[in-house]
């Protein structure tokens, strides 16, 4: 068809592809600012404590963010697509409990990992089906499953705990691949690359942005919106399962209160990384830097003997501050 051949028509005028170069955009980006802050915190930390600049203590510091970041990558995609999953910490509890049950039935490391991932995936499927099939708002659905999933853990465990995971299982949360490089660090790095490529370099990633900005227009454009959202819920569930494997392995025990409140830290990480809570924008590099930044802050405060609960004040302030400060500047300039 001649229609498909626009070269036949004389070009009236040329519109440039881009005005600003990608490099110029990068300099002004949220990610650059975040990186700057991370470097500053790093330097402050090294002044604050002589123990900070030590390969082993830095390696320890990564545990502050690796498990959360695994979930945060999937959560970033989900939030960009305009949905949210507040049940991730409860999924960890349910996965960990299921692993404990399998362990008591004599399951080996392989069976434990499979159980963790499968239960995580199932939880994601449950959330996803409720949201995509019944058309329910994800925030309410996952507040419900947040209670439900952890509630099942409580039913199973009560005030008890599972202990005595097999020795081989400890590798995930306590093992080292090479020198100070932990297994979790390697998983984190690989996932960062995979999620980064998926979001920024594939059709799927483009569709995620399109849905988050305008799901109706995305549907009209031939995107299978519900399917994409379902995949994202499955991914979030799977990543929560993986985090459950790592966390259970690291702690060596399961209590129903495991990972409680972690959903907040994951959401904070995603929002701090520059992902709009309203959907439609954000990047994986941003989330990676945010994860490291949060790890550094937590670790630095730990070195100064600041108790964990007080650290949460900083996390809360960061969450609000990162959005509030630029807006305050804009308002001040607006005058």
């Amino acid at each position: 068809m001649s229609l498909a051949d626009p070269d036949m028509v004389p070009a009236p005028r040329q519109i440039p592809d881009r005005l600003a170069s990608p490099a110029a955009k990068l300099l002004k980006s949220w990610e650059s600012l975040l990186l700057l802050v991370a470097v500053a915190v790093f330097i402050l930390n090294s002044f604050a404590s002589p123990y900070f600049l030590d390969a082993w203590s830095l390696s320890d510091a990564t545990f502050n963010f690796t498990e959360k970041a695994m979930i945060a990558f999937a959560m970033a995609l989900l939030i960009i697509a305009g949905e949210i999953d507040l049940s991730v910490a409860s999924i960890i509890a349910l996965c960990s409990t299921a692993m404990g049950v399998v362990m008591q039935m004599g399951g080996g490391t392989g069976a434990l990992v499979f159980t963790g991932l499968a239960v995580g995936l199932s939880c994601g499927a449950f959330n996803g089906l409720l949201v995509t099939r019944l058309g329910l708002p994800s925030i309410v659905v996952t507040i419900g499953t947040m209670s439900l999933f952890r509630g099942i853990s409580y039913i199973v465990l009560g005030d008890g705990a599972f202990r005595g995971y097999p020795e081989g299982f400890a590798w995930f949360g306590q093992g080292y691949v090479f020198w100070v490089i932990t297994v979790e660090m390697v998983i984190f790095t690989l996932l960062a690359i995979v999620f980064g490529v998926v979001l920024h370099k594939t059709n799927f990633g483009r569709q995620v942005y399109a849905i988050g900005n305008n799901s109706t227009a995305a549907l009209f454009s031939g995107i299978r919106v519900q399917r994409v959202k379902m995949i994202l819920f499955l991914l979030t569930g799977l990543m929560s399962g993986l985090a459950a494997v790592c966390l259970t392995s690291r702690l060596g025990s399961t209590r129903p209160s495991i990972a409680s409140g972690m959903e907040l830290e994951v959401v904070t990480m995603v929002v701090l990384g520059g992902v709009s809570i309203l959907g439609g924008s954000g990047s994986i590099p941003g989330v990676v830097i945010a994860a490291i930044l949060m790890g550094l802050v937590t670790f630095g405060l730990g070195l100064l003997n600041v108790p964990g609960i007080v650290m949460s004040i900083f996390i809360g302030l960061m969450l609000i501050g990162v959005i509030a400060v630029p807006r305050l500047f804009k308002m001040a300039r607006g005058k």
């Binding site: 659905v141 419900g144 499953t145 947040m146 209670s147 439900l148 952890r150 509630g151 099942i152 005030d159």
Partner: peptide, 13 residues
Amino acid sequence: PFWQLAISGAAIL
């Protein structure tokens, strides 16, 4: 009483 959390979750859904 450990059932309470799961029940309220199911009730929400």
